[in-house]
């Protein structure tokens, strides 16, 4: 068992209903010893923030498949800032390489593209959390 029991919130923000990927990620993180709080579909920035506060989350993962990432990603980081929550946000799903830079600049901690291996998923989440803890 991991001595650091990370708690990660996973959610789908907005109308996009593609949940195959995020469910696989939930299981990958569980099998890596993390506690995953899966909020499910059709979440708002408000519901995600409330859950992050109440669950004292170490990281938030959002999955996006409808090309809405450049709108919704920055919207989420802005909401986190407004709520003064210093929790790394990781975005997964269909994100073209050329959009990654813009997302990172808006405050997203990491982006996981399609075809990321289980090890990449786990290490991305771990690294994002440790990077936050070091600051």
């Amino acid at each position: 068992m991991s001595d650091q029991q990370y708690r990660v919130i996973l959610a789908k923000l907005g109308l996009d209903g593609h949940d195959r990927g995020i469910k696989v990620v939930a299981r990958i993180l569980r099998d890596a010893g993390m506690e995953v709080i899966y909020l499910g579909l059709r979440q708002t920035t408000g519901s995600i923030i409330a859950a992050a506060e109440e669950e004292d989350a170490d990281a938030i993962g959002l999955s996006m498949h409808n090309a809405g990432h450049l709108t919704l990603g920055p919207k989420m980081t802005a909401s986190l800032n407004d709520a003064r929550l210093d929790i790394p946000l990781i975005i997964g799903g269909i994100v073209p390489d050329e959009d990654i830079e813009e997302l990172l600049e808006s405050g997203v901690a990491a982006v996981l593209g399609p075809g990321a291996s289980a090890e990449e998923v786990v290490s991305t989440v771990r690294d994002a959390i440790s990077a936050r803890d070091e600051t």
Partner: peptide, 12 residues
């Protein structure tokens, strides 16, 4: 999970 110590907590 007794094997990994991980869990999926849900039904918020």
């Amino acid at each position: 999970s007794p094997l990994t110590g991980g869990a999926i907590l849900g039904d918020r």
